[in-house]
Write a protein that binds this DNA or RNA. Sequence first.
DNA 1: GTCAACCATTTGTCCTGACATATTGACGTC
DNA 2: GACGTCAATATGTCAGGACAAATGGTTGAC
Lengths: 252, 252
Amino acid sequence: MSGYIVRMPGPRFTLDRSSPVPLYFQVAEQFEQAILTGEIAPGERIENEIALAKDLGLSRPTMRQAIQVLVDKGMLVRKRGVGTQVVHGKIRRSVELTSLFDDLSAAGQKPRTEVLAVGKVPAEEDVAHELQLGVGDDVWSLERLRYVGKQPLALMHNFIPVDVVDLDEVDLAKTGLYAHLRTTGILMRVARQRIGARGAGADEAARLGEKKGAPLLTMQRTAYDNAGRAVEYGRHAYRPDLYAFELTLVDR
Amino acid sequence: MSGYIVRMPGPRFTLDRSSPVPLYFQVAEQFEQAILTGEIAPGERIENEIALAKDLGLSRPTMRQAIQVLVDKGMLVRKRGVGTQVVHGKIRRSVELTSLFDDLSAAGQKPRTEVLAVGKVPAEEDVAHELQLGVGDDVWSLERLRYVGKQPLALMHNFIPVDVVDLDEVDLAKTGLYAHLRTTGILMRVARQRIGARGAGADEAARLGEKKGAPLLTMQRTAYDNAGRAVEYGRHAYRPDLYAFELTLVDR
DNA sequence: GTCAACCATTTGTCCTGACATATTGACGTC
DNA sequence: GACGTCAATATGTCAGGACAAATGGTTGAC
């Protein structure tokens, strides 16, 4: 035998076939836990698909689907003829379809949001173009300033078509915009982002506690729902000393 | 019947079963072409999986796999009980495991690279950490300045473990670093990136034709090969008026 | 006329089975 | 001892079938 073989005949992997959670997902979740806790070490090979499937009483396609989930997340790497092993390096969360509010909440920090302005405005040309509307059509305009502790972190400006949601009755200081959209049944499936940088304007600088011309990290995002309809367009500016985008790329 | 049904019984979809290219990939490629050329319009529903599989003489799993490729790219959206349709909005390339050189070449522009310094240096702490080496171990250090036309665009600093590749005999002014790594059999499968911004230092500013303190877009990337071994760590700075990162996020 | 229940459609999940292909190590020959 | 060949192993691809679940329209009852 070459090198050490694997543990993980799956001593405490449990499957609930009566659960509505798909089997492949149950397996993927438990594998992810085992990797994150270090129970399966980085670089370690896991057992082959067929044996794993047999151990868990699953078919090979289902087992493959479970492994694929983690491969897509960049936690596992497959090598034909060799096996599947855990990637080295600490795992970072990849960019997902969530907002900064979710990010910070998950990180255990205390984000605070100040709503600067909410209201309906006629869409300018770029907004109309991104949201697939006509120039001058009414859209919600939402400007917010986000803090972490006492530090201003991000200046966010969102535009939403008026027929998507009604923002008047929402306390956006307490609820994240994306969280609210989710509760109303708006599911965002695809988003296109553009990340760049530029110098701060005078007004931005004042809001963010920076000087005019100070470097800002910028992000523009257009999000689309299930039906391919554009539901949100946002232009945001971040203080680069407090925020950065991390992402994991996987080549397939 | 609701709405219009679909074209695309696949008049000129061709499959080559003797080709080494997987069938699902052949189908995905031709579908992608049809979408990019507008032959299948945004918002349009495509035929259901079973009918498509039958038309092309494939099994449903294979057909699903083909569609999944495009769903992962954010070009198609599936809805259970309804069907699969083309996403609205123009499709942008998502971030992939390629370098700026590839990006610009593909865009038809003429990138030029000036090699500022190549050599072996002892790894500093952060470099050693990212590359899973000891502090002081020799690594290749590669500094390059990239131009588009006469405009300096990016200042790039890469670090590569000495046992991964020999950079002495390579003309890095003509060959992209990633392209060279690929030709030597180094395949990068996973990369973790961090995108941020900061003000330019005096030396950077001079190199990039900017003023000291001017906003720069920064990217740090650590790439891992098949075996999960760290093969490259790079710290790069971009002129934000000439470059931005675009990416497509897909929620699954 | 309104609303609930039903049903057809379509994707989601899961199974069994088979063969192809890349990789690695062991064996055997020179 | 060095090198090429072969076999074992593991993932990659593909087929065909079955049932579950969500969606949206239609039908029927009130």
